[in-house]
Amino acid sequence: MKPAPFEYVKAVSVADAVALLTEHRGDARLLAGGQSLVPMLNMRLLRPSVVIDVNGLADALGEIALQGDAVAVGALVRYAEIERSSLVAERVPLLRHVVAYIGDRQVRNRGTVGGAVAHADPTGEIALVTLALGAIMRAEGPDGVRDIHAEAFFLGPYTTALAPDEMLTHVIFPPAAPAFRFFERGRKHNDFAVLSLAVVGRPEPDGTWRDIRIALGGVHDRPVLAAAAARALEGRRWDDALVRDAALLALEDCDPPDDFRASAEYRRHLVPVHVRRMLSALAGGHE
């Protein structure tokens, strides 16, 4: 388990990293926390000719900051910093909540938000939360900066809308509905999710719910929004029958994989059960 030979370059700025990506278009990898990249290098599953270390760019990419009423999380922010951030706790509590489900202490001390999003694991918790909260991915490339909505960012397993010469610099969380529930089930503690699920919504004084978003992980080739289910619930008062029917609609937006962790059949069984339970918990104010 030793990596194939590669050239190591330490980027001195975002522009430098982008220039290096452009120079080695498609044959370079960015090294941030290294929690996925380094094992893949060691197993020789990836053989880039150049590894561009961006860990020196914390000044530009290591901040969690308010931008208007949105929270901008730099791509180099470590999971552990999310756990400790009072700004995140106050403004993006769901993001803080899911960090406890990521890896172990060592992983959380190294792994980065940008790395998680750019790696685009279909079971990743951070990616799930960006969908649930409608986050914006900010990327820098040779032609400048562009913003990509989370819903347009994840294209497939480990595949994103980033071009080979683009670098993710920030994940921006706009204000979102305040109430949420999160659920995850894996084969062991902190393992990749068999199913993960975030439901977000805003209870109105008239008893209806608005801005419903239901994000699912582990049950498609990428994290997905259960849009049909959310539509069925939007602007309505919920009762058990509505919640049950909406939960079944969640299956319309996913095509669960069949893999060693769980069969597609079992995942299809779990999706409506847990969507129903989380919606009920959200409505009832309990887990």
């Binding site: 084969r187 062991k188 503690h189 393992d191 990749f192 962790r261």
Partner: peptide
């Protein structure tokens, strides 16, 4: 990655 040996938490 795929061999589910328990940790103390499990």
């Amino acid at each position: 990655l795929d061999y589910f040996a328990p940790t103390a938490a499990d």
